[in-house]
Amino acid sequence: MHSITQQHIRERLWYRYQRRLAPYLFISPFYILFVVFALGPLIAALYFSMIKWPGTGPMTFLGLANYLELFEDEIFLKSLGNTTYYAIGAVFVILPVALFLALLINAAVVRAKSLFRIAFILPVLTSTVAATIMFLLMFEHQYGLFNVALEAVGLNALKWLDEELVKLSVLLVAAWRYTGLSMLYFLAGLQSIPTDVYEAASVDGAGRWTTFWQITLPLLRPVSLFVVVVSIIGSFQFFAEPLLLAGGGPNNASLTIANYLYRVGFSYLRMGYASAVGYILAVIIFILTLLQLKFFGAFGRS
C-alpha cells in the first residue's frame, strides 16, 4: 500500500513536471538550430569584425581598425550610397505604384480581379537569374527592346548600362519583379478592411480623396509597415540583380553593400573586414527599423 502511494506520487510529479517541460521541449529543436546557425554567427560576426583573417591561418586582433578603415573606403561609401538609392527607390517609387495598382484592382468597378492579381504576380514567379538576363538583353544598346522602342517613337537611344543610368536600370528590374508582390500584400490589407467603414464614410459625404487619406491609409498601417520593412531589408540585401546586370559596375556604379561584402570576403579574402561591412549594415538597418516603428506608431499599439 505504501509503495503504491509513493509510485502514484512519483507518477503525478512526473506528469506535472512533464507538462511544465513540454513547451520547452517542443520549441527546443528550433532554438538549437537557431542558436547554432543564426544567432551564433550573428554574435560571432561582431568579434570577426575586429580581426584580420585571410580565410586560413592565424587571426590577428585589430580592435576597431576595420571600422575606421571603412569610413575612408571609397568603394564602401559608394556601395552604401547605391544601396540607399535602391532602398529609396523601393520605398518611394515601387511601393506607391504597388499601392495604386492594389487600389485600382480592389475598386468595385474593376472586373476580373483574380486575373489581374495572378498576372501581376507572374514576374515574382520567374527565376531571378532568368529575369535579369532577359532585361540585360532588353537594355542592350543597339538591338535591345528599350532602345528599339525609343527609336521607334523618334527618341535617342540610351546607354542603359553606363555609369549614369545603370542604377536606374537595376531599379527598373527590381520594380518589374517586386511591384506585384507588394501589390499583393496591399491588396490583402485592403480586402481585410470592412465594407461598412466605406459605407459610413460615403454617407458622411466623404469624397474619394478624403476617404483614401482619412480611412484607407490609416487602416492599411500594419500592412504598410510590413511592406516598407520588407522592402528596405530586401534592398539592403540586394545581390543578384546588380551582379548579373552589370557585375556591380561600371566603375562600381551599381555595386550594393551585399555585392561589396561578397567581394571583400571571397575575392580579397578579408573575412574580418567583410564582417565589419556587415555590422555597419546591421546598425543602419536597426536604426532605420526603429525609425519606421516610431513613424508607424507600432510601439504605442502593442
Binding site: F37, A38, G40, P41, L42, A44, A45, F48, V229, I233, F236, Q237, F239, I257, A258, L261, Y262, G265, M271, A274, S275, G278, Y279, L281, A282, I285, F286, T289
Partner: peptide, 13 residues
C-alpha cells in the same frame, strides 16, 4: 528585422 547577409562570413565559417 536582421538582414542575414550581415553574418554571412561567420555563418560560412
Amino acid at each position: 528585422m536582421v538582414p542575414w547577409v550581415l553574418s554571412f562570413i561567420p555563418a560560412y565559417m
